[in-house]
Every structure is written in structure tokens, then in C-alpha cells.
């Protein structure tokens, strides 16, 4: 039994890499035992871990890596969806044309503005909701489930309902606004109203999810911090700003990163909010996001090469955003 320790040794030091075999003390018995181990056993020891992890990597190669490389290759060609094997070399033409492609930059701006309009209120509301839910409430489980319900709703169903709510002539939002003395707003055809409406779908869908994450983090904050703050005479409000918020910093960073990634990939909401059921994001492309533009070029217009170049450009933009995010979070950590 004791000799088994060599295969299940604890890590050599805390935080170290995989278990390191301690230099074996080679006794006579040990030698004999080792020679008894069949070659098959050794091969098993060596290769079966790879077999265990292989399903993920095989699937990743088939559905992640290969499409990535193929898309890169296709982006250097003029190629149509109707004949994907008929590729004509185009060099960097698909990329250079992006620079003066008004529709691309329009979509990029829309992605940014929709991202801001949806992410900022969403995270602030989530924080507020989590704070309220953190108090002792009657039926708190019920509220938590209710908050998560939008997240469990399909985007398609939600978007279709929102399209009806935001209708110009018969929509409920305009009906409510008219009591406030505000005239009819054309939620689909005017630029800012349409972006706000699309953002509203996103906010509705993700606020509860983020609130639950915040709530979980809040409940992990030690109670004695609040106690000592209270002893020092801090009000509820001060406690929130000086105890809760600093303790939540890593969680807030996490939700910011996840929301930024989500915002840069917004697709379903504007697609289904489109009055034309197409992918142009409104008659004047007023709420067409990058994801939607990519889809329009690839699937509606069938220009595989152009769509691939857009996909790679989006990928590069995301990397830049990721680096900026990283730098900011390091600054924050350094300053605290």
C-alpha cells in the first residue's frame, strides 16, 4: 500500500505544477516490482490522460480551431456562399475595403453605443437590486427566481414581445408615454429610440443574472466588517459605499468583462427587432451591430470572403478591448 505513494503524491509545494515524482529510492524489491509492471501498464499511464482530455480537444479542433483558420483563409479570397470551393485570391482587399466601408464603421459605432446604453444601466441596476435582496426579505427565494426568469427566456420570444411593446402606433410604451404628455416615438425607425429599445431588451434579460452574481458575492462578505463599521458609526449608505463596494471589486470587474464581451457580440436582439425581418438593422442601419453586419454579408448577401474578413477584424478589435480591460483592471488593483 505504502509504495503506492509515488503515483499519488501531493504537490511538492503549494501552488506548484502537477505532482512531481520524488526521486525514487531504488531498492532491490522496488527494482523487481518495476520490472514486473507490464509495458502495457506504462503505456496506459502515459497515454490514457491524453485520451481522457481528447474529446474536448477533438471537438475544439473540429468546431473551433478549424473554422477559425478556414475563416482566415477565406478572408483572403473572393468567395461566395453558393460556391465555397471556388476561391479567387484577393489578398488583403477584403480587409482594406473595411477602412472605407461606411456600413462597417456604422455598425461598429452602433455596437459601441448599444453596448454602453445597455451595460452601464444594467450593472448599476443589478447592484442596486442585489443590495435590496441582501436585506432579510419575506419570500426572498421567490424574488431571486423572478429575477432569473428573463435570463431563462429565449431571446426570440422576448424580442418579439418587445417589438410589440415598442410599436409606434399600437405599442404599449407609447401609450404609457402619452399619459406623460410625450408624443409618439418611432422606436424602430429613429436612431436613438431604436438603440434604446434594443438596449432595453438586453437590460431586461441580463440584469437579474448580474444581480444574482452580485448577491452571491455580497453574501460572502464577512458580517463582522459591517459590525465594526456600525460600531464606528457608519450609516447604511456609508456601509454600502465603504464596505460592500470595495469587497465587490473583483466581482464587478468580472461582470464588466463578461458584459463587454456580450455587448460586442450582440446579435439576436437587433436581428429580431428589425422591422424588415432582415439583417440590415433598420431601414437606415440605425441599429445594425457588427455581429448583424457579419451575418448580413455572409448569409443574406452570401459574400463569404467579406464576411470572414469582418469576423477577423471583430476578433482583432476584441483582443484590443481585452488588453485595455486588462490594463485598466491592473491599474485599479495597483491603486487599491
Amino acid at each position: 500500500m505504502a509504495t503506492r505513494h509515488d503515483t499519488a503524491a501531493p504537490p511538492a509545494k503549494e501552488g506548484g505544477a502537477a505532482p512531481v515524482r520524488p526521486p525514487a529510492v531504488v531498492t532491490e524489491a522496488e527494482q523487481r516490482r518495476r520490472t514486473r509492471l507490464s509495458r502495457r501498464w506504462r503505456r496506459d499511464m502515459r497515454w490514457s490522460p491524453y485520451a481522457f482530455v481528447s474529446p474536448f480537444f477533438l471537438l475544439f479542433i473540429a468546431f473551433g480551431l478549424f473554422p477559425l483558420i478556414y475563416t482566415g483563409w477565406a478572408s483572403l479570397h473572393t468567395v461566395e456562399l453558393t460556391a465555397p470551393t471556388d476561391m479567387q485570391w484577393a489578398g488583403l482587399r477584403n480587409y482594406t475595403r473595411i477602412f472605407d466601408d461606411d456600413f462597417f464603421w456604422n455598425a461598429a459605432r452602433n455596437t459601441l453605443t448599444i453596448g454602453i446604453i445597455s451595460t452601464v444601466p444594467q450593472l448599476m441596476m443589478a447592484l442596486g437590486l442585489a443590495h435590496i435582496l441582501n436585506y432579510r426579505l419575506r419570500a426572498s427565494i421567490f424574488y431571486r427566481v423572478v429575477m432569473l426568469a428573463p435570463y431563462a427566456t429565449s431571446i426570440a420570444a422576448a424580442s418579439l414581445v418587445f417589438v410589440l411593446l415598442f410599436g409606434r402606433d399600437y405599442g404599449m410604451v407609447n401609450w404609457a408615454l402619452h399619459f406623460a404628455g410625450i408624443g409618439r416615438i418611432d422606436w424602430q425607425n429613429d436612431k436613438w429610440p431604436s438603440q434604446i429599445a434594443v438596449s432595453a431588451i438586453i437590460v431586461w434579460r441580463w440584469t437579474g443574472y448580474n444581480a444574482l452574481i452580485y448577491l452571491a458575492a455580497m453574501q460572502a462578505i464577512p458580517q463582522d466588517l459591517y459590525e465594526s463599521a456600525a460600531l464606528d458609526g457608519a450609516s447604511r449608505r456609508q456601509q454600502f459605499f465603504h464596505v460592500t463596494l470595495p469587497q465587490l471589486r473583483p466581482t464587478i470587474l468580472f461582470t464588466c468583462v463578461v458584459s463587454t464581451i456580450g455587448a460586442s457580440q450582440v446579435f439576436g436582439e437587433p436581428l429580431l427587432f428589425d422591422a424588415n425581418k432582415g439583417a440590415s438593422g433598420g431601414a437606415e442601419h440605425q441599429f445594425q451591430t457588427l455581429g448583424l453586419y457579419l451575418y448580413e454579408q455572409g448569409w443574406v448577401n452570401q459574400h463569404l470572403g467579406r464576411a470572414s474578413a469582418i469576423a477577423w477584424t471583430m476578433f482583432l478589435i476584441l483582443i484590443v478591448i481585452g488588453i485595455v480591460n486588462y490594463v485598466i483592471s491592473r491599474r485599479l488593483r495597483a491603486s487599491s
Binding site: 473572393t78 461566395e80 466601408d101 461606411d102 456600413f103 418611432d186 425607425n189 440590415s280 431601414a283 437606415e284 442601419h285 448580413e296 454579408q297 443574406v300 448577401n301 459574400h303 470572403g305 467579406r306
Partner: peptide, 22 residues
């Protein structure tokens, strides 16, 4: 939606040309 016919024609042709270009 209040745009002039000329503006509408420009938006339409610009969109179509961008969508047709391979």
C-alpha cells in the same frame, strides 16, 4: 418617415451596391 425621395434613393442604392459587391 420624412426623408426626401432623393435621400431615400441614395440610401437604397448605396445599401444595394454594398450588398451586391462580392
Amino acid at each position: 418617415k420624412g426623408k426626401s425621395p432623393a435621400e431615400a434613393w441614395t440610401t437604397a442604392t448605396k445599401t444595394i451596391d454594398n450588398n451586391l459587391e462580392k
